[in-house]
């Protein structure tokens, strides 16, 4: 019995002037898995992720979500379909508060006339939700949810961004280098968070340069090279050095795509 991928892409092409970022790239994410995407700098990982999350529109190629062809023109459309992305730059607004950032672009309005005619935001509700989510994820102890994000440390900001994705991502969560800017202990928290989100059944795409992290949490590893997928490997059977060798072109990739689902 074969399982259908929840998110997949076929033949994605994206050019920026004379630079080819994506050269007929394929991509599959299956329900409930953590798929790591690794690749050298400039291999096109970010372009791939942007293409499936609506942040850029590919020049050609198709994206499917749950078997249906989708055509995202903005991150908003992808989000509305249940795909949440934690960007490397976090996409947080520094001067706004933690609660404001959590709800940026999907604010809750008060019910009744105040919300409908005066467009008034339901701040207590949003603050409560933000507090619940952050403590539920155990990522940090919040003293003041109205604190501006710019007064937080790098790890705390990452926590806010991950919490936002985990709180709203209903079908797929994409994380772009979530541990890159973090210390050892904060990284551990994020890895635990990834396991936590996975155990609730939400599949995760993890883009990372950190091989120990990738090999620890990933079910499958998608290796990206020169703008396309060159291999999908099983972290349990391949060594880190072989994965890096495939990634950099020092070793020929295996012929078959590792796929325990079909």
């Amino acid at each position: 019995m074969s399982v259908q991928p929840i998110l997949s892409a076929k033949g994605l092409v994206k050019r920026y002037g004379r630079v080819t970022a994506l050269d007929h790239a394929d991509f599959e994410l299956y329900p409930g898995e953590v798929l790591a995407v690794i690749g050298d700098n400039g291999a096109g990982k970010s372009s791939l992720i942007k293409a499936v999350s609506g942040a850029t529109i590919p020049d050609s190629g198709d994206v499917w979500l749950d078997g249906e062809k989708v055509d995202f023109h903005s991150p908003m459309e992808a989000r509305d379909s249940g795909i949440e992305t934690v960007y490397q730059n976090l996409a947080l607004s520094p001067a706004l508060s933690i609660a404001d950032n959590l709800f940026l672009g999907r604010e809750i309005r008060k019910e009744g006339v105040l919300g409908k005619w005066f467009r008034m935001l339901d701040r207590p509700k949003m603050q409560q939700f933000a507090r619940d989510k952050l403590s539920e994820l155990g990522l940090m102890t919040i003293q003041n949810i109205d604190q501006a994000v710019e007064t937080l440390s790098g790890g705390q900001r990452q926590g806010v961004a991950v919490a936002r994705a985990a709180a709203f991502g209903s079908r797929v969560i994409i994380m772009d280098e979530p541990t890159a800017a973090l210390g050892v202990k904060e990284s551990r928290k994020v890895l635990e968070l990834i396991q936590d989100v996975k155990s609730r059944g939400t599949p995760i795409v993890l883009i990372s340069h950190n091989m120990p992290h990738v090999f620890e949490v990933a079910d499958r590893i998608h290796i990206h090279r020169l703008g396309k997928r060159c291999a999908v490997v099983d972290p349990k059977t391949i060594s880190m050095s072989d994965a890096v060798a495939i990634m950099t072109g020092a070793m020929d990739p295996p012929n078959d795509v590792y796929n325990p689902y079909t």
Binding site: P75, N101, G105
Partner: peptide
Amino acid sequence: WYLLNRTAWGKHVYAVGDDPEAAELAGIR
């Protein structure tokens, strides 16, 4: 003051001025 501080539009105005790229990625047009 009300529009800027108590409505989504106001939050978006601040977010766009703060970091337009982040605002765009967060889904603000």
